[in-house]
């Protein structure tokens, strides 16, 4: 890609990334949440890959990283949910953290944590799918 594309992509990626994080952490207050924000985060990564070359070896490393962070974030969701089996009313998916004030950023107990983890998971999963497709294309060529 040309220098202009690279520079513009670099500038815009920052804002896309921040916007994705904003959507994720405000998931319990405003529309959107883990899934929508995660998709935006994945968009930022994909823009970077599209603008700056596609070295297959490098991409494979990235794919391993993405798939591992995907598994880890889902596992953490499960662990957070299972902790509910031991705290408070002792049920699966129990919301055991203090719920705070309505409308504040740190409130709603465990829900923002789930949102953040789901955001990571969705971003990693979409990135993995994208990488799998371009690695496949590189291998055919």
């Amino acid at each position: 890609m040309s220098l202009i594309v690279k520079k513009v992509a670099q500038l815009i990626t920052v804002f896309i990334f921040l916007y994705g994080i904003y959507i994720i952490v405000h998931g319990h207050l405003t529309p959107g949440g883990g899934f929508a924000g995660g998709a935006i985060l994945a968009g930022a990564y994909i823009l970077q890959i599209l603008a700056f070359g596609r070295d297959p070896l490098h991409l494979k490393k990235k794919e391993t990283g993405a798939s591992i962070s995907e598994s880890i974030s889902i596992l953490t969701v499960l662990i957070l949910a299972v902790v509910g089996l031991f705290i408070g009313t002792k049920v699966f998916f129990n919301n055991y953290l203090p719920s705070g004030k309505i409308g504040e950023l740190v409130s709603a107990g465990t829900i923002p944590l789930y949102n953040i983890l789901i955001g990571i998971e969705v971003a990693a999963a979409l990135l993995t799918i994208f990488l799998a497709l371009i690695i496949y294309k590189e291998e055919i060529e």
Binding site: I68, S71, L78, V82
Partner: peptide, 15 residues
Amino acid sequence: IIPLATAFVIPIIGK
């Protein structure tokens, strides 16, 4: 919980 957790542990420890 058990099969779901196993499904996501396998790709990590399996490496």
